[in-house]
Every structure is written in structure tokens, then in C-alpha cells.
Design a protein around this nucleic acid. Structure first.
Lengths: 214, 214
DNA sequence: TCATTTAATGAGTGATTACTCACTTTTATT
DNA sequence: AATAAAAGTGAGTAATCACTCATTAAATGA
């Protein structure tokens, strides 16, 4: 099984899709992430997928519906394990120190991003232009994640491990550092040699010292 | 004079442009940043600019040339003052402390971003898809800026103000924090109330403590 | 096995695309 | 004022766009 098909399986494991439908989605992901949504034609997707153009519209009423059907499941994947696992653990106190939580959080996000990179690129590209995606992202991903992050930060602030600062500002600084690493690692310089463990540790230490009680 | 025209003047002050050409550029900036480059048609730009469609192609051979002519000057603006002013000052030691340099750098970038926001949006959107823009950005902006940043960081590391860490990693962490603030401020939550001075100070302190000698 | 549903097809649709070009109008030069 | 050059026009073009639909193929269930 190819890497692409592994990616596909993880994103669409719960759905019952025909073989042609899977090929359409794979072809669309490839073209959308390479050329952008608007610059990709349905005929091109059909050709790459090895199906008739009409087959695309049998399963998806419009081209935009195809886009949404690709990006929407990713949002669930992005938010799901984050909320269910990480935060549950934190709020139930298995991570006594904020550093341990940070390490786990970055590692978690890192794995998902690595696997879903093309779809994430599509998502980031189209969110500014597709109100439907934008709304879904803000409500399902950003809002829920942010609320939880605020809780966690408050928790560690109360423990005296973090500096007293509006949690919003603290969250912004921590999130910037994490995404700065992920974006550098997987978007800007994916071909450089990375000692991931070391860079994650540096990022964690940077956040820790930057936000620690002085 | 409208705000848009101020923006225009700053971006294209050195060029001799006809009135219609200015209107075309303004219309293109508006449409490109709202709908994206690929999703914007030349007929739409012509209509918005109040010119005939042929006029666009009198000045720009292709639609892509129009895009480049909008984004390219911005890159010079982004890099120009950064290198000429900020770094010159740093390397000639008027900023004894790294914090003072950081404050000045963020303030400088902040002003430019505020003014050029729509064009910056276009640039960020299209760099992944337009090799010409990508190359220009990497060579003119990213490379030069990065080289200088590395020098500055090395300078302050030698002074003992910054932790010993590969300068590349230190640069990544500092840049992430700065851009995290700028993106939050002007892209994600431009409508929230911001105490800019305070947030910049928090960001500076965060970087300082995160990277300071321990 | 046969009937019914579902999947797949590809030629065809009108609309829109980026771009051209013969022509008119404006500006600059002498 | 005469001439040349540059700017502006808008109807026209072939290509391509997202999408439809009548028809055929495959899968399903009794």
C-alpha cells in the first residue's frame, strides 16, 4: 500500500467509499495542494484519477463540495486527539510539570502534521476564501482548542509555574513558538536535516523560560 | 486622498504610472486579496478599475505579470528599511541591549505590515504557487534578512546576553514570536482591542527570558 | 436468475476565461 | 500646427470552465 493510501485510510477510514471515489479524492488532494483549489480543473482531477469527469459530479454536487469533503475530516482529526487525549490528561494531573505537557502536545501535533501535510496546505490556503471552511475551522478547531489551552495555562499559572500574564497573551506566545517550529520543520525547510527531539526540547525550554515565574 | 491611494503611493512612488494604471493596480490588489489570484478574472479587474479589459494587457503582457508587478515592490519595501536602518544601527552598537533592538525591529515591521496588509496577504497566498515569486522572496527577502539576523544574534551571544544555542534555532524562536504577534494582531484578530505597546513589550520580554543566559 | 438500485460514463451545454488586434484618442516633440 | 508615439478601447477568439444527462455497466438482494 502506498503512502498516499495510508494517508487516505486515516482520513476517511469511517466512510464507505468506492474505489473510484478514493482515487478522485487522492487526485484532488494532489492537485489542490500543488496548484491551489481555484487553479485546478475538474477535468484535470478526473484525468489524474483515471475516471470520467461525470463520475466526480455523481458523488459531489459541486467542485466546492469536493474540497469540503477533503478538508472537513482533517479538522476533526486535528481537534479530536488534542482535546480527548492531551487535555484530559492535563486536567486530570498526570503532567505535574507544564514542560511534560508541552513536549507531549508538540509531539502529538507533529505526527499529525507530518501525515496530513498536503491536506493541511489545502486547508490553510482555502480558509481565507471559503466561508464554510472558515466557519467550521473557527468553531470546531480554533475555538475549542483555544478554550482548552486557556484552561491549561490558567491551571499552571495557579500552580505558580507560569508567569502572571493575561492567559490570552501567554497562549499566543506559546502557540506561536510551537507553530513556528512546525511550520519551519514541515513547510519552510522540510529538506533540511532536523534533530526533532532536540529542537522540540529547545522550543519547550524557550517557552518555559519565556513564561516562567521570575 | 484615500487610504488606498496612500498605500499605492508608497508602494509605487518611484514608478511613472498613468492614472488608469494606478486604478488597475488598486482594483487588482482589492480583488486578489479578497478572492485570491486564480479566482479573480481580468474582466472583473477591468470593471472595478473602470477601464477596458484591453488596457490591462497594454501594460501587462499577462495576468501573472500584473500579479508580480504588485508583489515585487513590496518585497523591496519589506527588506529595504530592515537591512539599511535596523541592522546598520545594531552592528554599529547604538543598541547596547538586545531588547532595545527587538523593540525597534518589531515596531518597524508592524508599521509596514499595517500599511501593506492586502498586498502581504496576496504575497503569502501566491508564494507557494508562483515559482517566480517564491524565488524572489527566498533570494531577496528571506536570505538577506536571515543572514543579518544570524549576525545580530551572534553579536549578542558573544556579548553574553543570549544563551549559547545554534543561531539558527535561536533565530527561529525569536522570529516565530515576532511573527506570531504580527499575524495575531493584523491577520487573525485585527478587530480585537490591542494595547500594542504592552503586547510588544510582553513579546520582547518573552524572547529575552526564553533566550537569555541562564 | 431476474429485477432494482447504484455507479460510471463521455459527449454536450452555455458561460467564462485570458488574451488579441484593428482602431481611436490623448499626449509629447518639433 | 504637424507628426509621431503612446495610451486606451471593445468587439472578437479559441480554449477551457463547471456541470448535465441520457445511456450503459456493475452490484445488490430476493
Amino acid at each position: 500500500m502506498s503512502e498516499d493510501e495510508v494517508l487516505l485510510q486515516q482520513l476517511f477510514e469511517d466512510d464507505k467509499l468506492t474505489e473510484k471515489q478514493k482515487k478522485i479524492i487522492l487526485a484532488a488532494i494532489e492537485s489542490f495542494s500543488e496548484k491551489g483549489y481555484a487553479a485546478t480543473s475538474t477535468s484535470e482531477i478526473a484525468k489524474k484519477a483515471g475516471v470520467a469527469e461525470g463520475t466526480i459530479f455523481r458523488h459531489y454536487k459541486t467542485k466546492k463540495e469536493l474540497l469540503v469533503s477533503i478538508v472537513a475530516p482533517l479538522m476533526a482529526k486535528l481537534i479530536g486527539p488534542f482535546i480527548v487525549n492531551d487535555f484530559h490528561k492535563v486536567l486530570d494531573h498526570p503532567y505535574e510539570h507544564v514542560e511534560d505537557f508541552l513536549r507531549a502536545a508538540i509531539q502529538n501535533r507533529s505526527d499529525i502534521i507530518k501525515k496530513m501535510l498536503p491536506v493541511i496546505k489545502i486547508m490553510m490556503q482555502e480558509i481565507p476564501f471559503q466561508p464554510e471552511l472558515r466557519e467550521q475551522f473557527l468553531e470546531q478547531v480554533a475555538r475549542k482548542t483555544f478554550d482548552r489551552i486557556l484552561l491549561v495555562i490558567k491551571e499552571y499559572q495557579d500552580k505558580g509555574q507560569l508567569i502572571e500574564m493575561p492567559t490570552l497573551s501567554a497562549a499566543r506566545l506559546a502557540i506561536s513558538s510551537i507553530f513556528g517550529y512546525l511550520i519551519s520543520r514541515y513547510i519552510f525547510f522540510p529538506d533540511s536535516e532536523w534533530d526533532d527531539e532536540l529542537e522540540i526540547e529547545r522550543t519547550v525550554q524557550f517557552i518555559m523560560h519565556g513564561l516562567s515565574q521570575r
